[in-house]
C-alpha cells in the first residue's frame, strides 16, 4: 500500500507544470524514502529528475518500493479537479493498476476523489554522476525565466558564459544579437533575490534555448534556481523545494562538430 498526503496539494500542480511539456509519460518510483522520477524528453537530449522526500508529506506510507507509470497529460487533467488550496492525498493499492487522488478543501467542506489508470512504461534509468561543477550560479528564478523568454524571441540557441564577474546569456538570430549579463549581487535584504557565482573555472557552453524555456515553467516552485555548468557536460538547472525535495533538469550542450 502506498499513501501520501500533501497539505499544499498545489505543489503537485506546480511540479506538473514543469514536467508536462518535457515528458508525456513517466514512471514514478515510490519507496519508503519518498517519491522520485527520472525521465528523458522524446529527443533524448534532456533529462528531468524529481525527488520528493517522504517527510515532505503529512502521512507517508510506502510498504514496498514500486514504480507506477502515469500519462502526465491525463494526470494534469485530473489535477484540474483540485482547488489551489486543497490538500491532496495519493493512494495506490499494490494489487490494483490505478491510483486514487483525493482533493479536500482546507475547511473540509469539499471532497473530490478521482481514480486514474496506471500504465506500463519501459524506461531506462541513467546514472547521474555527482559532478563537481566548474561554475554554479544561483539567481532569482523569475529573473532566469524572463531572460530565457526574452532571448527565445530573438534566437534558437543560447550561449551561457560564467566568469568571476557574473553569468552572460547570449543569442543571435535574424533580428540581431543579444547579451544579458547578471552580476553577482548579494546586497538585497532577501536572500532569494541574490545572485551568487561560485566559480572553479570560467566556462562557456551553448544550448537549445527552447529547453531552458521549458525548464523555467518550474519557476513557481522556488524563488531561487541554480545553473551548474562544466566544460562539455550537460548543464543542471535546479529548482529546490526547501527541504521537501527538488526538481533537476539536465540538458546536453551543443558541441562543435
Amino acid at each position: 500500500m502506498f499513501e501520501a498526503k500533501l497539505i499544499q496539494g498545489n505543489l503537485i500542480k506546480k511540479i506538473m507544470e514543469g514536467l508536462k511539456d518535457l515528458v508525456t509519460e513517466a514512471n514514478f518510483d515510490l519507496s519508503p524514502g519518498g517519491v522520485s522520477l527520472q525521465a528523458m524528453d522524446s529527443s533524448h537530449v534532456a533529462l528531468v529528475a524529481l525527488m520528493l522526500r517522504g517527510d515532505a508529506f503529512e502521512n507517508y506510507r510506502c510498504d514496498r518500493p514500486r514504480s507506477i507509470g502515469m500519462n502526465l497529460v491525463n494526470l494534469s487533467k485530473v489535477l484540474k479537479c483540485a482547488g489551489n488550496d486543497d490538500t491532496m492525498t495519493l493512494k495506490a493499492d499494490d494489487t490494483q493498476n490505478n491510483i486514487t487522488l483525493v482533493f479536500e478543501s482546507q475547511a473540509e467542506d469539499k471532497y473530490a476523489e478521482v481514480q486514474m489508470e496506471l500504465m506500463d512504461i519501459d524506461s531506462e534509468h541513467l546514472g547521474i554522476p555527482d559532478n563537481t561543477y566548474d561554475a554554479i550560479v544561483k539567481m532569482p528564478s523569475a529573473q532566469f525565466s524572463q531572460i530565457v523568454k526574452d532571448l527565445s524571441s530573438i534566437g534558437d540557441t543560447v550561449t551561457v558564459s560564467v566568469t568571476k564577474d557574473g553569468i552572460t546569456f547570449s543569442t543571435s538570430g535574424d533580428v540581431g544579437t543579444a547579451h544579458i549579463t547578471c552580476k553577482q549581487n548579494t546586497s538585497m535584504e532577501k536572500e532569494a533575490d541574490h545572485t551568487t557565482v561560485n566559480l572553479e573555472h570560467p566556462v562557456t557552453l551553448t544550448f537549445a534555448l527552447r529547453y531552458f524555456v521549458t525548464f523555467a515553467k518550474s519557476t513557481s516552485l522556488s524563488h531561487q534556481m541554480s545553473i551548474s555548468l562544466s566544460k562539455e557536460l550537460p548543464v543542471m538547472v535546479e529548482y529546490a523545494m526547501g527541504d521537501m525535495g527538488h526538481i533537476r533538469f539536465y540538458l546536453a550542450p551543443k558541441i562543435d562538430d
Partner: peptide, 14 residues
C-alpha cells in the same frame, strides 16, 4: 555545425 549528443551518452547506465 554544432552537434547535440544524447543525454545517455554522458550519463550511461547506473
Amino acid at each position: 555545425a554544432m552537434k547535440q549528443r544524447s543525454i545517455a551518452s554522458f550519463f550511461g547506465s547506473p
